[in-house]
Design a protein around this nucleic acid. Structure first.
Lengths: 231, 231
DNA sequence: CCTCCACGATTGGTGAACAACTGAGCGATA
DNA sequence: TATCGCTCAGTTGTTCACCAATCGTGGAGG
Protein backbone atom coordinates (compact mmCIF):
# COMPACT_ATOMS: atom_id res chain seq x y z
CA UNK A 1 0.00 0.00 0.00
CA UNK A 2 2.90 2.29 0.44
CA UNK A 3 3.42 1.64 -3.23
CA UNK A 4 0.13 3.19 -4.27
CA UNK A 5 0.71 6.09 -1.98
CA UNK A 6 4.08 6.69 -3.48
CA UNK A 7 2.62 6.55 -6.96
CA UNK A 8 0.00 9.08 -6.03
CA UNK A 9 2.58 11.43 -4.64
CA UNK A 10 4.70 10.98 -7.73
CA UNK A 11 1.75 12.10 -9.80
CA UNK A 12 1.53 15.27 -7.77
CA UNK A 13 5.23 15.87 -8.31
CA UNK A 14 4.99 19.34 -9.74
CA UNK A 15 2.32 20.59 -7.42
CA UNK A 16 3.99 19.74 -4.16
CA UNK A 17 6.13 22.85 -4.23
CA UNK A 18 3.08 24.88 -4.91
CA UNK A 19 3.23 27.03 -1.86
CA UNK A 20 5.41 27.74 1.07
CA UNK A 21 4.29 30.46 3.40
CA UNK A 22 3.07 33.64 1.76
CA UNK A 23 6.02 35.56 3.09
CA UNK A 24 8.52 33.12 1.60
CA UNK A 25 6.70 33.32 -1.68
CA UNK A 26 6.81 37.09 -1.61
CA UNK A 27 10.50 36.92 -0.76
CA UNK A 28 11.09 34.66 -3.74
CA UNK A 29 9.30 37.01 -6.11
CA UNK A 30 11.23 39.97 -4.78
CA UNK A 31 14.47 38.03 -4.96
CA UNK A 32 13.97 37.25 -8.61
CA UNK A 33 13.09 40.85 -9.38
CA UNK A 34 16.23 42.05 -7.67
CA UNK A 35 18.56 39.41 -9.07
CA UNK A 36 17.28 39.91 -12.58
CA UNK A 37 18.51 43.46 -12.30
CA UNK A 38 15.12 45.10 -12.70
CA UNK A 39 15.83 47.25 -9.67
CA UNK A 40 18.98 49.33 -9.63
CA UNK A 41 21.30 49.06 -6.66
CA UNK A 42 20.37 51.49 -3.94
CA UNK A 43 16.71 51.52 -4.98
CA UNK A 44 14.52 51.84 -1.88
CA UNK A 45 11.84 49.20 -1.28
CA UNK A 46 8.70 50.85 0.04
CA UNK A 47 6.59 48.52 2.11
CA UNK A 48 3.23 49.97 1.12
CA UNK A 49 3.94 50.03 -2.56
CA UNK A 50 5.25 46.46 -2.54
CA UNK A 51 2.27 45.32 -0.49
CA UNK A 52 -0.19 46.64 -3.03
CA UNK A 53 1.73 45.42 -6.07
CA UNK A 54 2.31 41.93 -4.61
CA UNK A 55 -1.23 41.93 -3.21
CA UNK A 56 -0.23 40.94 0.30
CA UNK A 57 -0.35 42.77 3.58
CA UNK A 58 2.38 45.09 4.73
CA UNK A 59 3.36 42.70 7.53
CA UNK A 60 4.00 39.99 4.99
CA UNK A 61 6.16 42.32 2.94
CA UNK A 62 8.10 43.17 6.06
CA UNK A 63 8.81 39.50 6.68
CA UNK A 64 9.92 39.04 3.09
CA UNK A 65 12.23 42.01 3.34
CA UNK A 66 13.73 40.60 6.52
CA UNK A 67 14.47 37.38 4.69
CA UNK A 68 16.20 39.22 1.88
CA UNK A 69 18.09 41.36 4.36
CA UNK A 70 19.49 38.26 6.00
CA UNK A 71 20.53 37.00 2.59
CA UNK A 72 22.33 40.26 2.01
CA UNK A 73 20.32 41.23 -1.06
CA UNK A 74 18.82 44.27 0.59
CA UNK A 75 20.27 46.52 3.23
CA UNK A 76 18.04 47.61 6.03
CA UNK A 77 18.43 50.76 8.13
CA UNK A 78 16.11 51.51 11.05
CA UNK A 79 13.33 53.93 10.19
CA UNK A 80 14.77 54.34 6.73
CA UNK A 81 13.70 51.08 5.22
CA UNK A 82 15.39 48.65 2.90
CA UNK A 83 17.29 49.40 -0.28
CA UNK A 84 18.75 47.04 -2.84
CA UNK A 85 22.23 46.35 -1.55
CA UNK A 86 24.91 48.43 -3.20
CA UNK A 87 27.96 46.23 -3.46
CA UNK A 88 31.31 47.90 -3.04
CA UNK A 89 34.71 46.71 -4.15
CA UNK A 90 35.25 45.63 -0.59
CA UNK A 91 32.17 43.42 -0.83
CA UNK A 92 33.36 41.86 -4.08
CA UNK A 93 36.73 41.15 -2.54
CA UNK A 94 35.03 39.58 0.47
CA UNK A 95 32.75 37.46 -1.65
CA UNK A 96 35.70 36.09 -3.56
CA UNK A 97 37.64 35.47 -0.39
CA UNK A 98 34.72 33.34 0.73
CA UNK A 99 34.56 31.63 -2.65
CA UNK A 100 38.22 30.72 -2.46
CA UNK A 101 37.81 29.38 1.04
CA UNK A 102 34.66 27.38 0.45
CA UNK A 103 35.12 26.14 -3.10
CA UNK A 104 38.68 25.07 -2.43
CA UNK A 105 37.42 23.19 0.59
CA UNK A 106 35.23 21.33 -1.88
CA UNK A 107 38.24 20.51 -4.01
CA UNK A 108 40.12 19.30 -0.94
CA UNK A 109 37.28 16.89 -0.29
CA UNK A 110 37.77 15.42 -3.74
CA UNK A 111 39.87 12.36 -2.77
CA UNK A 112 37.21 11.02 -0.43
CA UNK A 113 34.22 11.84 -2.60
CA UNK A 114 32.26 9.00 -4.17
CA UNK A 115 31.80 9.00 -7.93
CA UNK A 116 28.11 9.79 -7.79
CA UNK A 117 28.87 13.10 -6.09
CA UNK A 118 30.95 14.06 -9.09
CA UNK A 119 28.09 13.50 -11.52
CA UNK A 120 26.35 16.83 -10.80
CA UNK A 121 29.55 18.63 -11.72
CA UNK A 122 29.72 16.82 -15.04
CA UNK A 123 26.03 17.52 -15.61
CA UNK A 124 26.52 21.21 -14.97
CA UNK A 125 29.43 21.27 -17.39
CA UNK A 126 27.32 19.63 -20.07
CA UNK A 127 24.54 22.12 -19.41
CA UNK A 128 27.05 24.91 -19.68
CA UNK A 129 28.20 23.70 -23.09
CA UNK A 130 24.64 23.40 -24.30
CA UNK A 131 23.69 26.82 -22.97
CA UNK A 132 26.72 28.45 -24.53
CA UNK A 133 25.65 27.18 -27.93
CA UNK A 134 22.35 29.01 -27.65
CA UNK A 135 21.78 32.75 -27.32
CA UNK A 136 21.12 34.35 -23.95
CA UNK A 137 23.19 34.48 -20.82
CA UNK A 138 20.64 33.31 -18.25
CA UNK A 139 21.14 29.59 -18.89
CA UNK A 140 24.91 30.01 -19.04
CA UNK A 141 25.04 31.77 -15.71
CA UNK A 142 22.74 29.22 -14.14
CA UNK A 143 24.88 26.33 -15.32
CA UNK A 144 27.98 28.06 -14.01
CA UNK A 145 26.23 28.52 -10.70
CA UNK A 146 25.35 24.83 -10.52
CA UNK A 147 28.90 23.86 -11.40
CA UNK A 148 30.42 25.68 -8.47
CA UNK A 149 27.60 24.74 -6.15
CA UNK A 150 28.21 21.07 -6.89
CA UNK A 151 31.85 21.48 -6.01
CA UNK A 152 30.94 22.92 -2.63
CA UNK A 153 28.48 20.09 -2.12
CA UNK A 154 31.45 17.71 -2.17
CA UNK A 155 32.12 18.75 1.40
CA UNK A 156 28.79 17.13 2.28
CA UNK A 157 27.91 19.89 4.69
CA UNK A 158 24.36 21.25 4.46
CA UNK A 159 25.34 24.31 6.45
CA UNK A 160 28.26 25.14 4.21
CA UNK A 161 26.14 24.61 1.12
CA UNK A 162 23.45 26.92 2.45
CA UNK A 163 26.02 29.56 3.22
CA UNK A 164 27.45 29.24 -0.25
CA UNK A 165 23.95 29.66 -1.66
CA UNK A 166 23.72 33.04 -0.01
CA UNK A 167 27.11 34.00 -1.36
CA UNK A 168 26.02 33.02 -4.84
CA UNK A 169 22.93 35.17 -4.49
CA UNK A 170 25.11 38.16 -3.72
CA UNK A 171 27.28 37.23 -6.64
CA UNK A 172 24.29 37.17 -8.93
CA UNK A 173 23.29 40.57 -7.61
CA UNK A 174 26.72 41.80 -8.51
CA UNK A 175 26.64 40.20 -11.94
CA UNK A 176 23.28 41.71 -12.73
CA UNK A 177 25.01 44.96 -13.58
CA UNK A 178 27.53 43.39 -15.92
CA UNK A 179 27.18 44.33 -19.53
CA UNK A 180 27.70 41.09 -21.44
CA UNK A 181 26.96 42.25 -24.94
CA UNK A 182 30.46 41.78 -26.23
CA UNK A 183 31.77 39.15 -23.93
CA UNK A 184 33.17 35.83 -25.05
CA UNK A 185 31.57 32.65 -23.86
CA UNK A 186 33.89 30.06 -25.38
CA UNK A 187 36.67 30.67 -22.86
CA UNK A 188 34.22 30.11 -20.02
CA UNK A 189 33.24 26.72 -21.42
CA UNK A 190 36.83 25.71 -22.03
CA UNK A 191 37.88 26.67 -18.51
CA UNK A 192 35.13 24.64 -16.95
CA UNK A 193 35.96 21.66 -19.10
CA UNK A 194 39.53 21.84 -17.92
CA UNK A 195 38.37 22.04 -14.34
CA UNK A 196 36.05 19.10 -14.82
CA UNK A 197 38.90 17.01 -16.25
CA UNK A 198 41.08 17.72 -13.24
CA UNK A 199 38.18 16.99 -10.91
CA UNK A 200 37.42 13.65 -12.51
CA UNK A 201 41.11 12.84 -12.28
CA UNK A 202 40.94 13.88 -8.62
CA UNK A 203 44.00 16.04 -9.14
CA UNK A 204 43.60 18.28 -6.11
CA UNK A 205 46.78 20.30 -6.53
CA UNK A 206 46.32 21.34 -10.14
CA UNK A 207 42.59 21.80 -9.72
CA UNK A 208 43.23 24.17 -6.85
CA UNK A 209 45.77 26.07 -8.89
CA UNK A 210 43.49 26.46 -11.88
CA UNK A 211 40.52 27.42 -9.79
CA UNK A 212 42.44 30.07 -7.90
CA UNK A 213 43.48 31.50 -11.21
CA UNK A 214 39.96 31.54 -12.62
CA UNK A 215 38.49 33.03 -9.47
CA UNK A 216 41.08 35.77 -9.53
CA UNK A 217 40.18 36.57 -13.13
CA UNK A 218 36.46 36.75 -12.35
CA UNK A 219 37.18 38.88 -9.31
CA UNK A 220 39.18 41.37 -11.35
CA UNK A 221 36.39 41.63 -13.87
CA UNK A 222 33.75 42.29 -11.22
CA UNK A 223 35.95 44.73 -9.33
CA UNK A 224 36.20 46.73 -12.51
CA UNK A 225 32.47 46.65 -13.09
CA UNK A 226 31.65 47.71 -9.54
CA UNK A 227 34.20 50.50 -9.68
CA UNK A 228 32.58 51.88 -12.80
CA UNK A 229 29.06 51.47 -11.43
CA UNK A 230 29.58 53.36 -8.17
CA UNK A 231 31.40 56.61 -8.85
CA UNK B 1 38.09 71.07 12.51
CA UNK B 2 37.63 67.41 11.82
CA UNK B 3 39.95 66.99 14.76
CA UNK B 4 37.57 68.60 17.26
CA UNK B 5 34.67 66.66 15.82
CA UNK B 6 36.52 63.43 16.23
CA UNK B 7 37.33 64.25 19.83
CA UNK B 8 33.70 64.96 20.61
CA UNK B 9 32.54 61.71 19.07
CA UNK B 10 35.21 59.78 20.93
CA UNK B 11 33.75 61.03 24.18
CA UNK B 12 30.38 59.54 23.25
CA UNK B 13 31.92 56.17 22.50
CA UNK B 14 29.83 54.08 24.89
CA UNK B 15 26.45 55.55 24.11
CA UNK B 16 26.36 54.86 20.41
CA UNK B 17 24.90 51.35 20.78
CA UNK B 18 21.90 52.57 22.67
CA UNK B 19 19.02 50.59 21.20
CA UNK B 20 18.04 48.22 18.43
CA UNK B 21 14.50 47.56 17.32
CA UNK B 22 12.06 45.89 19.69
CA UNK B 23 11.97 42.74 17.62
CA UNK B 24 15.76 42.43 17.62
CA UNK B 25 15.76 43.01 21.31
CA UNK B 26 13.15 40.32 21.84
CA UNK B 27 15.20 37.98 19.66
CA UNK B 28 18.24 38.69 21.77
CA UNK B 29 16.43 37.94 25.00
CA UNK B 30 15.04 34.72 23.59
CA UNK B 31 18.45 33.77 22.22
CA UNK B 32 20.05 34.11 25.62
CA UNK B 33 17.28 32.12 27.26
CA UNK B 34 17.73 29.32 24.76
CA UNK B 35 21.52 29.32 24.73
CA UNK B 36 21.70 29.35 28.50
CA UNK B 37 19.88 26.06 28.44
CA UNK B 38 16.81 27.25 30.32
CA UNK B 39 14.61 25.70 27.66
CA UNK B 40 15.07 22.02 26.85
CA UNK B 41 15.56 21.03 23.23
CA UNK B 42 12.28 20.40 21.49
CA UNK B 43 10.44 22.81 23.77
CA UNK B 44 7.72 24.59 21.80
CA UNK B 45 7.69 28.38 21.76
CA UNK B 46 4.13 29.65 22.00
CA UNK B 47 3.68 33.05 20.45
CA UNK B 48 0.98 34.26 22.82
CA UNK B 49 2.75 33.18 25.96
CA UNK B 50 6.02 34.75 24.84
CA UNK B 51 4.22 37.92 23.84
CA UNK B 52 2.75 38.38 27.31
CA UNK B 53 5.91 37.42 29.17
CA UNK B 54 8.14 39.66 27.02
CA UNK B 55 5.47 42.35 27.04
CA UNK B 56 5.45 42.86 23.30
CA UNK B 57 2.87 42.14 20.65
CA UNK B 58 2.47 38.78 19.02
CA UNK B 59 3.69 40.15 15.70
CA UNK B 60 6.94 41.25 17.31
CA UNK B 61 7.40 37.81 18.80
CA UNK B 62 6.79 36.32 15.38
CA UNK B 63 9.54 38.46 13.92
CA UNK B 64 11.91 37.48 16.70
CA UNK B 65 11.16 33.81 16.16
CA UNK B 66 11.84 34.16 12.45
CA UNK B 67 15.22 35.64 13.28
CA UNK B 68 16.08 32.73 15.55
CA UNK B 69 14.83 30.27 12.98
CA UNK B 70 17.20 31.71 10.40
CA UNK B 71 20.01 31.36 12.91
CA UNK B 72 19.08 27.72 13.38
CA UNK B 73 18.35 27.99 17.09
CA UNK B 74 14.69 27.16 16.67
CA UNK B 75 13.03 24.93 14.12
CA UNK B 76 9.87 26.13 12.53
CA UNK B 77 7.13 23.92 11.09
CA UNK B 78 4.10 25.39 9.31
CA UNK B 79 1.03 25.59 11.52
CA UNK B 80 2.89 23.87 14.31
CA UNK B 81 5.07 26.69 15.45
CA UNK B 82 8.67 26.85 16.54
CA UNK B 83 10.49 24.54 18.89
CA UNK B 84 13.99 24.79 20.30
CA UNK B 85 16.14 23.01 17.74
CA UNK B 86 16.94 19.44 18.62
CA UNK B 87 20.45 18.78 17.37
CA UNK B 88 21.17 15.34 16.03
CA UNK B 89 24.48 13.58 15.64
CA UNK B 90 24.30 14.48 12.00
CA UNK B 91 24.07 18.15 12.97
CA UNK B 92 27.04 17.88 15.30
CA UNK B 93 29.08 16.23 12.58
CA UNK B 94 28.08 18.97 10.15
CA UNK B 95 28.93 21.73 12.59
CA UNK B 96 32.38 20.29 13.08
CA UNK B 97 32.88 19.83 9.38
CA UNK B 98 32.22 23.53 9.04
CA UNK B 99 34.52 24.32 11.94
CA UNK B 100 37.33 22.37 10.33
CA UNK B 101 36.79 24.14 7.04
CA UNK B 102 36.51 27.64 8.40
CA UNK B 103 38.91 27.62 11.32
CA UNK B 104 41.62 25.94 9.28
CA UNK B 105 41.12 28.61 6.64
CA UNK B 106 41.95 31.06 9.41
CA UNK B 107 45.13 29.15 10.18
CA UNK B 108 46.06 29.13 6.51
CA UNK B 109 45.80 32.91 6.53
CA UNK B 110 48.36 33.03 9.31
CA UNK B 111 51.46 33.80 7.21
CA UNK B 112 49.93 36.97 5.76
CA UNK B 113 48.31 38.18 8.96
CA UNK B 114 49.68 41.30 10.64
CA UNK B 115 50.73 41.04 14.26
CA UNK B 116 47.86 43.13 15.58
CA UNK B 117 45.37 40.57 14.25
CA UNK B 118 47.04 37.97 16.44
CA UNK B 119 46.55 40.01 19.58
CA UNK B 120 42.88 39.05 20.06
CA UNK B 121 43.88 35.40 20.07
CA UNK B 122 46.43 36.02 22.78
CA UNK B 123 43.89 38.06 24.72
CA UNK B 124 41.34 35.28 24.54
CA UNK B 125 43.94 32.80 25.76
CA UNK B 126 44.76 35.02 28.71
CA UNK B 127 41.06 35.37 29.47
CA UNK B 128 40.72 31.63 29.27
CA UNK B 129 43.49 31.12 31.81
CA UNK B 130 41.95 33.66 34.15
CA UNK B 131 38.47 32.18 33.80
CA UNK B 132 39.73 28.69 34.42
CA UNK B 133 41.17 29.80 37.74
CA UNK B 134 37.77 30.92 38.93
CA UNK B 135 34.66 28.79 39.41
CA UNK B 136 31.93 28.65 36.78
CA UNK B 137 32.00 27.59 33.17
CA UNK B 138 30.36 30.59 31.53
CA UNK B 139 33.52 32.70 31.37
CA UNK B 140 35.58 29.73 30.24
CA UNK B 141 33.24 28.93 27.39
CA UNK B 142 33.07 32.55 26.34
CA UNK B 143 36.85 32.85 26.23
CA UNK B 144 37.05 29.68 24.20
CA UNK B 145 34.49 31.12 21.84
CA UNK B 146 36.48 34.31 21.41
CA UNK B 147 39.65 32.32 20.82
CA UNK B 148 38.26 30.43 17.86
CA UNK B 149 36.39 33.43 16.55
CA UNK B 150 39.61 35.42 16.47
CA UNK B 151 41.24 32.70 14.43
CA UNK B 152 38.47 32.87 11.86
CA UNK B 153 38.81 36.64 11.82
CA UNK B 154 42.31 36.16 10.45
CA UNK B 155 40.72 35.52 7.08
CA UNK B 156 39.54 39.13 7.19
CA UNK B 157 36.19 38.21 5.69
CA UNK B 158 33.15 39.75 7.38
CA UNK B 159 30.87 37.26 5.66
CA UNK B 160 32.86 34.28 6.83
CA UNK B 161 33.01 35.67 10.36
CA UNK B 162 29.26 36.19 10.42
CA UNK B 163 28.69 32.67 9.22
CA UNK B 164 31.01 31.36 11.87
CA UNK B 165 29.06 33.34 14.47
CA UNK B 166 25.93 31.44 13.55
CA UNK B 167 27.81 28.15 13.75
CA UNK B 168 29.06 29.06 17.20
CA UNK B 169 25.53 29.82 18.31
CA UNK B 170 24.48 26.33 17.30
CA UNK B 171 27.51 25.00 19.07
CA UNK B 172 26.53 26.81 22.24
CA UNK B 173 23.04 25.36 21.93
CA UNK B 174 24.61 21.95 21.74
CA UNK B 175 26.93 22.58 24.66
CA UNK B 176 24.11 23.79 26.84
CA UNK B 177 23.19 20.21 27.54
CA UNK B 178 26.68 19.13 28.54
CA UNK B 179 27.08 18.18 32.13
CA UNK B 180 30.37 19.75 33.19
CA UNK B 181 30.33 18.94 36.87
CA UNK B 182 33.25 16.57 36.72
CA UNK B 183 35.10 17.83 33.72
CA UNK B 184 38.69 18.95 33.76
CA UNK B 185 39.51 22.48 32.72
CA UNK B 186 43.30 22.38 32.91
CA UNK B 187 43.67 20.36 29.68
CA UNK B 188 41.56 22.93 27.85
CA UNK B 189 43.85 25.73 28.97
CA UNK B 190 46.98 23.78 28.11
CA UNK B 191 45.69 22.94 24.65
CA UNK B 192 44.89 26.52 23.86
CA UNK B 193 48.27 27.66 25.10
CA UNK B 194 49.92 25.18 22.76
CA UNK B 195 47.79 26.43 19.90
CA UNK B 196 48.63 30.01 20.70
CA UNK B 197 52.35 29.23 20.70
CA UNK B 198 52.10 27.64 17.26
CA UNK B 199 50.04 30.56 16.02
CA UNK B 200 52.50 33.15 17.26
CA UNK B 201 55.26 31.13 15.61
CA UNK B 202 53.13 31.10 12.46
CA UNK B 203 53.64 27.36 12.18
CA UNK B 204 50.75 26.56 9.88
CA UNK B 205 51.42 22.86 9.47
CA UNK B 206 51.65 21.92 13.13
CA UNK B 207 48.90 24.31 14.12
CA UNK B 208 46.60 22.67 11.60
CA UNK B 209 47.53 19.26 12.88
CA UNK B 210 46.92 20.13 16.52
CA UNK B 211 43.67 21.91 15.77
CA UNK B 212 42.31 19.00 13.76
CA UNK B 213 43.10 16.77 16.69
CA UNK B 214 41.41 19.01 19.23
CA UNK B 215 38.35 19.52 17.08
CA UNK B 216 38.02 15.78 16.65
CA UNK B 217 38.17 15.33 20.40
CA UNK B 218 35.50 17.94 21.02
CA UNK B 219 33.36 16.44 18.30
CA UNK B 220 33.55 13.00 19.85
CA UNK B 221 32.54 14.40 23.21
CA UNK B 222 29.53 16.21 21.81
CA UNK B 223 28.48 13.27 19.68
CA UNK B 224 28.35 11.22 22.84
CA UNK B 225 26.35 13.84 24.69
CA UNK B 226 23.84 14.22 21.87
CA UNK B 227 23.48 10.46 21.55
CA UNK B 228 22.64 10.19 25.24
CA UNK B 229 20.29 13.15 25.15
CA UNK B 230 18.11 11.97 22.24
CA UNK B 231 17.34 8.29 22.64
C1' DC C 1 -10.11 -1.97 20.62
C1' DC C 2 -10.36 0.94 16.84
C1' DT C 3 -12.25 4.77 13.88
C1' DC C 4 -14.02 9.00 13.09
C1' DC C 5 -15.36 13.53 14.11
C1' DA C 6 -15.94 17.71 16.47
C1' DC C 7 -13.76 20.99 19.34
C1' DG C 8 -10.29 23.97 21.43
C1' DA C 9 -5.83 25.78 20.87
C1' DT C 10 -2.49 27.69 17.84
C1' DT C 11 -0.61 29.56 13.87
C1' DG C 12 -0.93 32.23 9.23
C1' DG C 13 -2.35 36.29 7.37
C1' DT C 14 -4.99 40.82 6.96
C1' DG C 15 -6.25 45.58 7.89
C1' DA C 16 -6.39 49.59 10.52
C1' DA C 17 -4.57 52.49 13.77
C1' DC C 18 -1.10 55.27 16.12
C1' DA C 19 3.64 56.55 17.64
C1' DA C 20 8.33 57.48 16.34
C1' DC C 21 11.46 58.76 13.23
C1' DT C 22 13.61 60.77 8.79
C1' DG C 23 14.50 64.00 5.27
C1' DA C 24 13.42 67.99 2.87
C1' DG C 25 11.82 72.51 2.61
C1' DC C 26 11.63 77.10 4.63
C1' DG C 27 12.33 81.01 7.21
C1' DA C 28 14.85 83.51 10.77
C1' DT C 29 19.12 85.00 12.52
C1' DA C 30 23.85 86.13 12.88
C1' DT D 1 25.88 83.71 2.76
C1' DA D 2 25.73 80.13 5.82
C1' DT D 3 23.83 77.96 9.66
C1' DC D 4 20.38 76.91 12.90
C1' DG D 5 15.78 75.55 14.17
C1' DC D 6 11.19 74.57 12.83
C1' DT D 7 7.44 72.39 10.61
C1' DC D 8 5.48 68.96 7.72
C1' DA D 9 4.65 65.08 4.75
C1' DG D 10 6.06 60.41 4.16
C1' DT D 11 7.75 56.09 5.92
C1' DT D 12 8.70 52.76 9.24
C1' DG D 13 7.93 50.43 13.96
C1' DT D 14 4.60 48.37 16.82
C1' DT D 15 0.23 47.18 18.55
C1' DC D 16 -4.41 45.45 18.33
C1' DA D 17 -8.45 43.02 16.70
C1' DC D 18 -10.05 39.83 13.60
C1' DC D 19 -10.74 35.62 10.70
C1' DA D 20 -9.29 31.38 8.12
C1' DA D 21 -6.64 27.21 8.12
C1' DT D 22 -4.68 23.70 10.55
C1' DC D 23 -3.17 20.50 14.27
C1' DG D 24 -3.79 17.53 18.32
C1' DT D 25 -6.73 15.49 21.21
C1' DG D 26 -10.34 13.47 23.48
C1' DG D 27 -14.67 11.47 23.41
C1' DA D 28 -18.73 9.25 20.96
C1' DG D 29 -19.91 5.50 18.50
C1' DG D 30 -19.07 1.28 16.07
Amino acid sequence: MTGELHDELAGLGQLEIKKASTAEHAAEVLREIILSGQLPQGQPLREMSLATSLDVSRNTVREAIRVLAREGLVTHSPHKGAVVTRLTQRDVADIFRVRRTVELAGVEALPGAPDEDLAPIADATAALEAAAARPGWAAVIDADRRFHESIVDLVCSPRLSRFYDAIQAELRLCMSIVDRRNEEREPLVAEHQQLLALILARDVARCTELMVHQLAKAEQMLLGVVAKDAP
